[in-house]
Design a protein around this nucleic acid. Structure first.
Lengths: 383, 383
DNA sequence: TTGTAAGCGTTATCAA
DNA sequence: TTGATAACGCTTACAA
């Protein structure tokens, strides 16, 4: 392995000069700069990163702590982190799939001395304490939970608002029984989305009678199972709100297998707005979440927090969650795409919901509130 | 920041003893071991990783070089890498989104001294030279291209075989005009899949007349556009083979929008077998690729290669690509799921393909070769 | 502008 | 079983 000494010898200078020359820094003679560069190129010198960070106590690396990088959503978050870090020429030391907080702590420990700071995504409660401990070692920015650790900045999604808006929209469409397929227990995002759903129902004066929750796990398979359970009930809901898109996909699949028309007999909505959502059949009404932005903003927050260490206090950003209205919930003007057919009433054999509000899409859209209309406009601007 | 010196002072021993005690290594008195541990715990000592790797010249870290982590497929590859690395208690220094080989090289350079080796995924040609240069600095394992860099082990997918098997299957189903929507130019996977398709046609005695390629970019949107282009042709193919699932999803969506029945009027197949493939409508016939295994095997290969450095020569693994037959290509026994309807002939207004072979699914399955049957069995065992 | 030398926080090699 | 002490490869005062 070639070290700085070899380069110094080759160029006929001291190692200090090599260091200065190669780091583009201050006063170095043009001639020696040339010689050093040539020597380094000739020997194919690759500076040792560990040694550099040991002396300079800067690593130019960000640690990333993730629960489990599964599927499209996480992959987008990481992309956001990666791209933004790359703009600052930072590298990423990633550790994921943390079953418990102990392994998370252990990972952070071994990162010590190799990172300048950390971005942590800890979607379950109880990891707060561990993160607080990590934050004593280096600056940490959190993704997801709202503001739990003192001194840490954070980015999160407007889960409650998004879920509430979706629920309100379904109510506007005339749905009176709206089931929710929840995310995994203890997951902060899942909890917040459930809360938004409940709050919207309460605000509309519809209590526990209209609500009905089913347990899911953020996977297609769990959505499929939940749909089967829903169909076994005597009184079916006219709408199902899944806490994420993956589960909504499973639900759509189950309803198709059972011959239940969507949105005719049952409306289905999701959360996340994955890339495939608009290509599903029917295209999925969902809540758009800027997964890329989640990662990107986290890194930006870290950078500003670090540059102004001590001066500024922690910041907490909440990324908006906007409704994206597509065909799976009905209510879009008929004929926009593939008119007729799926809009029909269908042989709704089971318990029809009292007021018969769930009919033609165009009519229902007219009833939509101004807020919803704005959401539609926004969503159309988005894509 | 607490260093080993602080712990030594607190425990009343030398730093050498602290190092030995904490590394669980050799002869340390039980009493001192206790005292050292207590001191470390009391002070919350986190060893400096950079210093450790400088002296020991082991980093316990694997560098990962990726082109662009986009979508489910890459995310699965990374999961495979991550989990397997975690089993060996290795960390991951990740750098992705490399536009060109220069930035790739630059990333690798800054990793020097911070990693023990590298897993590189370079799906475009021309990066071979850069990787060879990297491989002179530390052991490298390649994902994807077959065996291009001397001395590097590699894992790849049986792209050619998979694409050929899919094409042969479509031929068996009676299709005479099979279009292929290609992946991005210069992408090795895309090229190999195209080659498999062509080889299968040639082997079946069907030359350029049956083949027809459309340019895609591995995205849903590009698949959508390709389908539109296909539908504009006077003589439509009876089957479309997309070089990956994302494009197949776009194709399905376009055909649905245009009212073209799948598989009745047109069969659609993909490549990758993403998690959503079986939840699409119709469920997608595709080639299963073990993305997780790709990452996992790469790490395992790296480990064995490193443990037996010099002794053994480089190894090249090729992961099988197996057909997964679902509903989007027809040919599955009718009634397995949601019988009738989609299996009908449909109003195929355009150029019917001469021999009228594209009829009822059940009949066509009977014609399937033994090899295909085995594939079905395998696929059912898989999920 | 350049060179000398003192660290950075560990591990590893010797003696003791 | 322990303690000095010399690396590890680099950056950075401080001198020259």
């Amino acid at each position: 392995v070639i070290t700085i000494r070899d380069v110094a010898r080759e160029a006929g200078v001291s190692i200090a000069t090599v260091s200065r020359a190669l780091n583009g820094s201050t006063r170095v003679n043009d001639g020696t700069l040339q010689r050093v560069r040539e020597a380094a190129a000739k020997l194919d010198y690759w500076p040792n990163g560990a040694a550099r960070s040991l002396t300079s106590s800067r690593t130019h690396t960000l640690g990333i702590l993730l629960p489990d990088l599964f599927g499209e959503f996480f992959s987008e978050v990481i992309r956001g982190i990666d791209q933004t870090a790359r703009d600052e020429t930072f590298q990423l030391l990633i550790s994921s799939s943390h079953a418990d907080t102990d392994t998370m702590l252990a990972s952070a420990r071994t990162m010590s001395g190799r990172i300048d700071g950390l971005i942590a995504m800890a979607p379950d409660k109880g990891s707060v304490e561990a993160i607080a401990r990590i934050a004593r070692q280096f600056p940490v920015v959190l993704i997801s939970p709202r503001n739990p650790v003192p001194g840490c900045s954070s980015v999160s999604i407007a889960n409650v608002d998004g879920a509430a808006a979706m629920t309100a929209h379904l109510l506007d469409l005339g749905h009176r029984r709206i089931a929710m397929v929840r995310g995994p227990r203890g997951n902060v995002d899942a909890d917040e989305r459930l809360r938004g759903y409940r709050e919207a129902l309460r605000r509309a004066g519809r209590g526990p009678r209209a609500a009905r929750g089913y347990q899911g796990a953020f996977t297609e398979a769990s959505g499929y199972r939940a749909a089967e359970e829903i169909l076994r009930r005597r009184s079916r809901p006219s709408a199902v709100f899944a806490a994420n898109d993956n589960m909504a996909i499973g639900i759509l699949s189950a309803l198709r297998d059972r011959g239940v028309e969507v949105p005719g007999e049952m409306a289905v909505t999701g959360f996340d707005d994955l890339a495939i959502a608009e290509y599903l059949s029917p295209s999925l009404t969902t809540v758009h979440v800027d997964a890329y932005g989640l990662g990107s903003r986290a890194v930006s927050l870290w950078m500003t927090a670090t540059r102004s260490r001590g001066r500024r206090r922690s910041r907490h950003e909440v990324l908006p969650a906007t409704l994206v209205l597509r065909r799976s919930c009905g209510g879009l003007r008929a004929g926009a795409k593939k008119a007729g057919g799926t809009n029909g009433r269908g042989g709704n054999g089971d318990g029809g919901n009292g007021d018969g509000g769930n009919g033609d899409g165009a009519t229902l859209t007219a009833r939509a509130t101004a807020r919803k209309s704005r959401a539609i406009a926004r969503s159309q601007g988005l894509r």
